[in-house]
Design a protein around this nucleic acid. Sequence first.
DNA 1: TGTGGATGCCTTTTT
DNA 2: GGCATCCACA
Length: 782
Amino acid sequence: MNLDELLNESQKAAVEYNDGASVIVAGAGSGKTRVLTYKIAYLLEQGMMAYNILALTFTNKAAREMRERIMKVVGPSASRGLWMGTFHSIFSRILRAEAEIIGFTPQFTIYDTADSKALVKSIIKEMGLDDKVYKSGAIQSKISNAKNHLITPHVYNSNIANYAEDKRYNTPEFGRIYEAYCRRCREANAMDFDDLLVYTAFLFKQRPDVLARYQERFQYILVDEYQDTNTVQHSIVMQLAAKYGRVCVVGDDAQSIYSFRGAEIDNILGFQRCFENCKLFKLEQNYRSTQTIVNAANSLIAKNRNQIPKTVYSRLSVGEPIEVVNTYSDFEEGYAVAKDIQHVANKRFVAYEDIAVLYRTNAQSRVLEEALRKSGIPYKIYGGLSFYQRKEIKDVIAYLRLIINPSDEEALKRVINYPARGIGDTTQQKLLTVVHDNPSVPALEIIADPLKYGVDVKNAAAGKLQKFAELINSFLDENEQQDAYHVAERVVFASGIMADVSADTSVENLSRKENIQEFLNAVHEFCDQKVNNGDNDIRLVNFLNEVSLITDQDTDKPEDKNTVTLMTVHAAKGLEFTNIYIVGMEENLFPSMMVESERDLEEERRLFYVAITRAKERCMITYAKSRFRNGQTQFSNPSRFLYDIDKRYLRLPNDASFGGGGIVDPYSMFDNAQCTLHNAQFSSRTHDRGEGLFKKREIIKTPVPKQTHKGSFKPVSSASKAPTSPQNVMGFYVGERVEHSTFGQGKILEITGDGDNRKARIDFDDFGEKQLLLKYARLTKA
DNA sequence: TGTGGATGCCTTTTT
DNA sequence: GGCATCCACA
């Protein structure tokens, strides 16, 4: 391995320094994975054993790809035993090995977010709290947030300030919910995603002997995407590296976009201070994008105050400017993108798979999808429901979970009456009360003989419970004898799931059946692969351990090849495409409406930075004047971020109009003529191109009669065509003649109110003056 | 106990 | 607009 031939100067320096701690700040497209790969290869070459190296990533996909690359460089045998995986998978492995120390069994279940929410919900219900005030989703994320900051229920409840704060927000019982939640997880022998990290951190903290073992084991620690680590992850890395200090973290503060999940950008910003003589390496040469794209992205991110100074540069061709396109509506935006895709595909011979359309929110995908479909462009949408989140798959998995961990209450609740076996809510409630009152008795034992344990049910219900217990027990027996595939197959048929799914032959049910079949195939494949690798331990428990941490990102299917990719900007991180389209570049969408602080805004800007830097050769940015959102047409201004990019790198929709400090789009003339109303009522908000432009909440909500919307917004035939006249979409103005379905024609005398409360006083020819709420009036222009 | 129409909500989401 | 959830009923 000759590093001189493989790496540039700074990459090589970063690879070769291994005496102590280091941070590698890797700009977008600077060969970060390459450096990590060769660093590990280099360590192996220097004589370090593979099993002494720990490499942590955030996704299974990243881990797998890096493992494959390392295997190619050093060969399979040298890389065998490498500890490479996600934080969650590595630490769940450690926790299973040490489970008894922290009061779990090695078969503990991993609750996904849906399980956590369901548990929170039942706790709220059992505590007799109002679920309108205590929303399970919000409570669950607050619990997650507390855990991410290593705040246990005990610590939380010892701080009176927390209680005062919760009281102020009308949720004084949060602390008790949190405590109950942790207790119930424990009783169910279950950990949520956060617990996998939290328990690891606490285990190391409380048991120096255990920590010492792992410190010896992991002689060298590498962490990818360090800008995305949260407090717990940082704490674990610190503890493991404390003894030898041989740790290397890699990341890019400019691409930190997960603070809403607890990621702390300060972890990477301040990492150097955590170790004495910590070396800092910067990878600044971008090998992905044209100079124009890199420069444009730099000029954007320069507007952020909080960052590690660096100069990313490209030595590839200058390339063409980023094209900024505005359209009247979101529909036309979709067609503008589709038209351009056809252009680059036909004229420049760019393959569809080298093209991606990126958006801020998943909700934007629908319109784009429609435009691409009607234009005959093959596409694939990332995100949405993953295979393992589908109801029928979760049902099957719940049975499997119950087999491995009969205390798993969320799984029990899911399957006890699915398929329907006459065990209704009341019976379940009565049963669960007794289960909770007897934490030392296995739930299955109570189900098998409910009357003996005082479950307050009739004989008929007791019999149904008994039968259910027998079913599960027969699965347990099967699991003693058989491999994962045979158990899963037996469950699918004997539980009645297959019969239920086969019962009706509607289209959606057909796919449910296929999904279950596909799931069985996946179990089979898992077993095959293990056996092929010489590992004959193909018990269900092994399959389940893997499956609970798997996501859809990991399942790339061959039939998805050569299609345009549609995804959120978040999902695009780490990927690259020849052509990138960034759509919906509007105020209140990108940056998001939810932005509340300078910090939030900087994160949105980084998100935009991530989006731009996905492009290798060409990037197009679009924004629409009107957009159908949450059932309403909303109007918005171009994103402030467009003004952050040095305009030397942009091709603007109307160059002449750009100089004055704001993008004035061609439709604004039209706008002024039609929207006297807006001028009169919102002049300070909509037409002030100065500071007012960037104020929050500047969307004008225009109630639109539903039918009319569809008719008037269908794009004509091609996207380039001038926009169709938006008849009754934009709102109405004083003096205008209108028509009402009951009152006939009339003239608007006055318009008052805001948003949904907007009213019009109308003088009808035949009915005289009436005051109508625009929201309901269904007026059309006469 | 299961269903259906009304009601409410709504960013991003590596595990 | 779309989806999940909930209460009212059969």
